[in-house]
Design a protein around this nucleic acid. Structure first.
Lengths: 341, 341
DNA sequence: TGAAGTGACCGTAACGGTTCAGAACCAATT
DNA sequence: AATTGGTTCTGAACCGTTACGGTCACTTCA
């Protein structure tokens, strides 16, 4: 039977035809993929776990780029891509247990996410992306810390000393407001933690007391968050000359808030982002470009040819500092601001 | 055993603990999802089939919106979403046979796509989207024909009589060039066929000989196609006053070509799109807005509560004609063009 | 004291394929 | 006639789980 469908050379054409005929006559719908998977121990799909609601993957430009790259790797291998629903609100990891996949890609979830723990318990190869190196599974990412350090050096060389920061969520709990040094240091999101730490290091080296720098966190990642975060920072210290955002989306939001306040970018305020999404390029944003598509593709490749016996691999992709037209030297003295718009 | 994991109430806490303990000691990785699926006849995932390479889904704005809506419906139901790799170049439908899913959503594939045929043979509920009503499975879509008819009426009322068209691929074979009446009529993509037919009807009613209207087809769907398609139409008949594109992406590309030629939109040339994507709104494009996200969500909902015994449902969502700033009455006489730039 | 009732626990039969060993068959060689 | 070799075909084991019915001990009530 199975042979008739999958191994035509194993039997005579006549028998094959007869088998297939009666199969059709009996209304047999063809081999059941699940039963086949059980026997062959191959699901023909890889699972993708992300920190956010499933639909978030289609709203965030960087996530979309990552997905596109991952999808490219999958279709090259003829593998399906299963988006695993992992509601971050609930601790329900059943969806991870239920996923019939040959491996997992985990994209930017908090270190202590129960879904991640559930994935690691599954006896299938796993690639984590934008996560700390666990030592036990493959990893792909960038040098977030170094890239942000370089961006900060750029701002410092322009003369910025009084800055503010808007960052994405740092942990699973919602904290829309200022961030303590404590919380910065203990952030559960690898990416955010390292970007902040790169910033802190560069500015500390330049003699800035980092503990005095206003850092505002936003749970939701969209332009509105960037705008309101920027507002909160600017309210706290109107004299900052540069606003560093840990993502382009936040930075684009911050730009709208600056415009709303009549602050000209970069003349009155320097704004920087991170990611290098298309919209940022169009806006001429100073940012760090990271190869999101390549990241997805690399993750897929790593997963799909994981030789059981190779030690966990760790891949760092290159980033590029993009100096756009949203960064410039600060205006003369801060007191000038009194005569500003 | 199974009970220890899934049915804590069926056994004493003490035994449960003991079972789980020894399971851990023996290195038992938890119940196998594939075997579970086989037994329970539930895969916990729905499959998505689209006409293009998998990664296309993440490049096309309308497809992204659809996916987001579908993902929303899935996460509401706690279901996974499996992207089925269906390379349109190859006739290989194995990926459809291999997909362990509880149902399929088919999004905008050609009528004669072998993958679609393979899906229909699978004994699982299916929802087709942007496809003709097959009568046997659920369908969700819009009134492409009516919406385009309405758009055409708008152009006609502005005074346009000499127009050109750039459309997306009409069949599985690549035909980057002019389209015969034959090919328009026999188009295998339901959406394109109906949009063209709505156009043809409206303009025919207005006394235009549709067989003389230049219609250009592009296989790849991106802005570059829109630009080159516009170029081809304008080369053929420089005197057209309006360029109708069957998607916003094509229209945005057409706008760049118009700009390159020094044609001011809408003063020298009216350009219209279809879909109502964000970028079109930003550009002030005259277009038909369709609720792509709702379409995805509706498809998911339909699939996820498909009562076995209900007759196939057909859902048409409402569209809205958006009159932007890329459409206006044609300039005086066409001969004026001779003094143009 | 015995019958009936209640839980907790256990054993087994599918689920629907794939795989592989070996049976059956036929032809050719010794 | 018996051995060998090769091909085609059949049957059974296995993949790992869940559903279900049955056993067993223990309680309750007449």
């Amino acid at each position: 039977m199975s042979n008739a469908y999958n191994r035509p050379d194993q039997l005579s054409p006549e028998l094959r035809r007869r088998v297939l005929d009666t199969a059709r006559r009996l209304g047999y719908p063809g081999p059941d993929p699940v039963a086949r998977s059980l026997r062959t121990r191959k699901a023909g799909a890889v699972g993708l776990l992300l920190t956010e609601n499933l639909s978030y993957a289609f709203r965030d430009p960087a996530a979309i780029g990552f997905l596109e790259g991952l999808a490219l790797a999958c279709e090259d291998a003829g593998t399906g891509l299963l988006l695993v629903p992992a509601n971050p609100e609930r601790e329900d990891v059943a969806s991870v247990h239920r996923a019939g996949v040959d491996g997992f890609v985990v994209y930017s979830v908090p270190d202590d996410d129960p879904h991640l723990a559930a994935v690691l318990e599954r006896p299938v190869p796993t690639v984590v992306c934008d996560q700390p190196d666990l030592g036990t599974v493959d990893r792909v990412g960038i040098d977030d810390r170094g890239a942000m350090y370089e961006l900060a050096k750029h701002l410092i060389s322009l003369g910025h000393r009084r800055v503010g920061v808007v960052c994405m969520r740092l942990a699973r709990d919602r904290n829309d407001g200022f961030v303590t040094a404590e919380r910065q240091h203990a952030a559960h999101f690898h990416v955010q933690r390292n970007r902040l730490s790169g910033l802190a290091e560069a500015f500390s080296e330049a003699g800035v007391d980092w503990s005095q720098v206003p850092v505002v966190e936003r749970f939701d990642h969209n332009m509105a968050s960037g705008a309101s975060g920027a507002a909160q920072v600017l309210d706290k210290d109107p004299q900052i000359t540069a606003l560093v955002c840990t993502s382009d989306v936040l930075a684009l939001g911050a730009m709208t808030e600056a415009a709303r306040r009549g602050l000209r970018v970069p003349h009155d305020l320097t704004v920087t982002g991170f990611d290098g999404i298309r919209e940022a390029e169009a806006a001429g944003l100073t940012t760090v470009r990271q190869p999101v598509l390549e990241k997805g593709r690399a993750a897929g490749k790593l997963l799909l040819d994981s030789n059981e016996r190779s030690r966990p691999r760790s891949v760092n992709l290159a980033t590029e500092l993009i100096i756009g037209k949203t960064s410039a030297a600060p205006r003369g003295g801060a007191e000038e601001r009194w005569f500003g718009p």
